[in-house]
């Protein structure tokens, strides 16, 4: 039995309108661009890390919106995974930032340019 049928039996709301989806996607795109701009313009490692998180959430928002639009659970499942990964990654990335800070006593990303190929 499809999800659609289950929802219909439960008397759930009708599918989201395309215009509503567009709003969600616009917010998602704004979040992504803000994150990207932040990532490119700032030099502080922690801020840059927060910007990546912002971009992450932009993707998550788009996924949820599409899930609601199509009335299936794929998008929500994906978001749960994204959150899990983001949590783990946040722990690791912050630990790395701490280590990098200990090395150079600075959070400036440009301090690490000598890692070039």
């Amino acid at each position: 039995m499809s999800l659609m049928a289950v929802l219909a039996q439960a008397g759930s709301p009708a599918p989201m309108a395309a215009s509503t989806l567009a709003h969600y996607l616009l917010v998602s795109a704004l979040l992504l661009v803000i994150g990207l701009i932040g990532f490119v313009t700032r030099r502080n490692l922690i801020i840059m890390f927060l910007c990546t998180e912002l971009m992450f959430q932009a993707a998550g928002l788009a996924a949820v919106a599409f899930g609601r639009y199509h009335l299936n659970l794929t998008g929500q499942t994906l978001v749960i995974f994204i959150l899990t990964v983001a949590a783990a990654e946040a722990a690791m990335a912050l630990a790395l930032v701490v280590l990098l800070f200990r090395r150079k006593e600075s959070l400036n990303a440009e301090e690490w340019q000598d890692l070039k190929g």
Binding site: V40, M48, A109, D114, L115, G117
Partner: peptide, 17 residues
């Protein structure tokens, strides 16, 4: 090709974007 690896994180990000 090696010079393209500048070590500047922002450069990489812009490249990806």
């Amino acid at each position: 090709i090696r010079p393209s690896q500048s070590g500047e994180l922002h450069g990489y990000a812009l490249g990806m974007a």
